[in-house]
């Protein structure tokens, strides 16, 4: 791969992406169009996040890549390897050691710091897209701050189901202006979007959009006074580390419908177990590599 430049992308492409990132930072929650490039991995597999990461990486960075909260899922492994090869950066699985974290579908459990950037992979950046398929229309709605359609949808949910029937990619409003899609993170993670010490960048490659939440930006999950937003999770504790406050994966463990719940954030779970926490099915001091 020595024929490719630092972090794969050519300098002109990186400049174009960097300019889009800066405008995104200046207009929190607004989706900046950018000329997304074809990447050596498929659209829909993190090309937007990869391009944002490539434009932000410095040789001094320590990179962490997660998918579904885990460092060892195949796509996370593949993207991490790509940057090891093309940028030669150090990588880690520990959230606290990372200076740049690329994620798909989760925000790490460990609180982020001012020294970190979190890059989200975004499939459909337009929060209004499933209500109005036309870009021309949704762009106009954002321009006019016309979010009536979204409120109608949420209200219809309440009328039909008694609550807002959106469990992930739950829409938020940024600094009282733009309605934004937080990427398909579970709504459990939504509160972490607001007032984060870290810079949060969002890249949608196929849809050619970049947007941003600067640190300490006010992000509110959409709701109604009589139906306030609730960041829900499975009503269990982690069966491996015992944590009662983390987002859990449900794992089917036998043919009889037996199941267990484990932290989706593998690094968080591992560090808790190393620190001696043991859940219902965990074995003290044995299972952690």
């Amino acid at each position: 791969m020595n024929d490719y430049t630092f972090a794969y992308l050519d300098e002109q492409t990186k400049r174009m992406i960097r300019r889009a990132i800066l405008k995104g930072v200046a207009i929190p929650g607004y989706q900046v169009p950018f000329a997304s490039r074809e990447m050596p991995m498929p659209y829909g597999w993190g090309t937007g996040g990869v391009q944002v990461t490539a434009a932000c990486l410095t040789p001094e960075d320590v990179l962490k890549v997660i998918d579904q909260g885990a460092d060892d899922t195949t796509n996370a492994v593949s993207i991490r390897k790509f940057f090891q090869r093309t940028a030669g950066v150090a990588v880690t699985e520990a959230t606290v050691e990372a200076s740049l974290i690329q994620t798909r579908h989760r925000i790490p459990e460990a609180p982020l710091t001012e020294a970190q950037i979190l890059v989200y992979q975004v499939p459909i950046p337009e929060p209004l897209r499933f209500l109005e398929p036309r870009e021309v229309e949704t762009r106009r709605m954002h321009a006019l701050e016309d979010y009536g359609l979204m409120h109608v949808k949420l209200y219809e949910d309440i009328a039909r189901h008694g609550e807002i029937a959106t469990a992930y990619a739950y829409p938020v409003k940024v600094e009282g202006r733009y309605v934004m899609d937080p990427s398909p993170i579970p709504k459990f993670d939504n509160p972490k979007l607001s007032d984060s010490p870290a810079l949060q960048l969002f890249g949608a490659g196929r849809e050619q959009r970049i947007y941003a939440l600067p640190p300490y930006t006010r992000v509110v999950s959409l709701d109604f006074d009589d139906h306030p937003f609730v960041a829900s999770k499975a009503d269990h504790a982690c069966d491996l580390c015992g944590a009662g406050d983390t987002y859990l994966d449900e794992v089917i463990i036998d043919d009889a419908g037996g199941r267990m719940f484990v932290c989706s954030d593998t690094d968080h779970c591992g560090s808790r177990r190393r620190a001696g926490h043991v859940g219902r099915l965990g074995v003290p001091g044995k299972e952690v590599a």
Partner: peptide, 12 residues
């Protein structure tokens, strides 16, 4: 490539 990367991070 590396100088512009560091400079961009500072501007960002």
């Amino acid at each position: 490539p590396t100088q512009s990367a560091r400079a961009f991070r500072a501007v960002l």
